[in-house]
Amino acid sequence: MSIGNSPEEDRPPVGRALQQARIDARLTVEEISTSTRVRAPIVQAIEQDDYSRCGGDVYARGHIRTLARAVGLDGDALVAQYDEEHGGRPEPTAPATLFEAERIRPEPRRPNWTAAMVAAIVAVIGFVGFTLVSGGGGDSGKQAAEEAPSPAPSKPADKPSPSKTSDPKPSESAIAGAPGDKVTVRMTAEKGNSWVSAKDHNGRLVHEGVLKEGHSKTLTDDKRLDLVLGNAGGVKLYVNGKQVKHAGEVGQVQRLSYTRGDPEAG
């Protein structure tokens, strides 16, 4: 079946074209769902040209391209037809119906009691020295002022390291020290927002939501983590302490599975 070569008035809708190609290939909805990891209800809705379950145009375009590849159609042509039928290619926006991802907030800055204590000591010493010099006079006042202990250095207390109180992100060495008996995945959205879904080795959903740009999420499991990234190229991914160099393209829906050990070994 050819998409994009016939006149526009003869072209079937995108969903109908996908459905007919699946039937011609003698594949069931369940078989397509298993091979593409697109849930069966979403496959059925798309075949009826209902994209309300996709979570937004960005994800609808990704599903269309994935399903087209599974049934032997030209995914780019179908996506272009979808854009024509829905008013052109939209700007990527976060779907309003999804749960908001967990935000990482910096810890509140704590009062610097050490600096306050040093300042109080310096004030007391200065007051005592001034009293002795102005009241005793002569050598006795001078000697008392000279014998007064010098204040402790206050620079370390006056300039606390901001990284100890305000930086919530773990260091690269902490990521590299991921436990070897578990699978650990850390995701950071660097190029726009990304919808993220994760299941453990039992198939249980452990996380689903929008990971906003600049925010991170860390997940662990004893055996395996299955991920769906709605904007794979915009996510910086560390698996078991090692960075995954290429998880996908910007705007691409990518499905990934990781187990313990080197993510690139298998």
Rank of each mutant, 00 (worst) to 15 (best):
Lys199Met: 00
Asn231Met: 12
Val185Phe: 04
Glu208Trp: 02
Asn231Val: 12
Ser194Glu: 04
His201Trp: 02
Gly192Phe: 03
His207Asp: 09
Ser194Ala: 07
Trp195Leu: 01
Thr188Gln: 05
Asp222His: 09
His215Gly: 12
Met187Ser: 09
Leu227Phe: 05
Asn202Ile: 09
Gly214Ser: 11
Ser194Cys: 10
Val210Ser: 04
Asp226Val: 14
Val206Lys: 00
Lys223Gln: 13
Asp222Pro: 07
Ser216Thr: 08
Gly192Pro: 08
Arg224Gly: 06
Val228Met: 15
Ser216Ile: 02
Arg186Thr: 08
Met187Glu: 07
Asp222Cys: 10
Lys199Thr: 01
Val206Ser: 02
Val185Ser: 02
Gly192Tyr: 04
Gly203Thr: 07
Lys217Ser: 06
Glu190Cys: 10
Val196Asp: 03
Ala198His: 00
Lys212His: 15
Asp221Leu: 01
Gly230Met: 03
Asn202Arg: 15
Thr188Pro: 04
Lys217Met: 08
Lys217Tyr: 04
Lys199Phe: 06
Val196Ser: 04
Glu213Arg: 09
Asn193Thr: 06
Asp200Ile: 06
Leu225Met: 10
Ser197Asn: 12
Met187Tyr: 05
Trp195Ser: 06
Asp226Lys: 11
Leu219Asp: 03
Glu208Met: 03
Gly230Arg: 00
Asp221Tyr: 02
Asn202Cys: 10
Gly192Lys: 03
Lys217His: 12
Ala198Pro: 09
Lys223Phe: 14
Asp222Lys: 15
Lys212Asp: 08
Gly209Asp: 08
Glu190Met: 09
Asp200Glu: 12
Ser197Leu: 12
Glu208Arg: 07
Asp200Phe: 11
Asn231Gln: 13
Glu208Tyr: 06
His207Ser: 06
Gly214Met: 12
Met187Arg: 08
Thr188Gly: 09
His215Ser: 13
Glu190His: 15
Arg204Pro: 05
Ala189Ser: 08
Ser216Phe: 03
Leu211Glu: 00
Leu225Ile: 13
Leu205Phe: 09
His207Leu: 01
Asp226Pro: 05
Leu211Ala: 00
Val196Ile: 15
Ser216Ala: 11
His207Phe: 12
Leu211Arg: 00
Asn231Trp: 07
Asn193Arg: 08
Asp200Arg: 12
Glu213Ala: 14
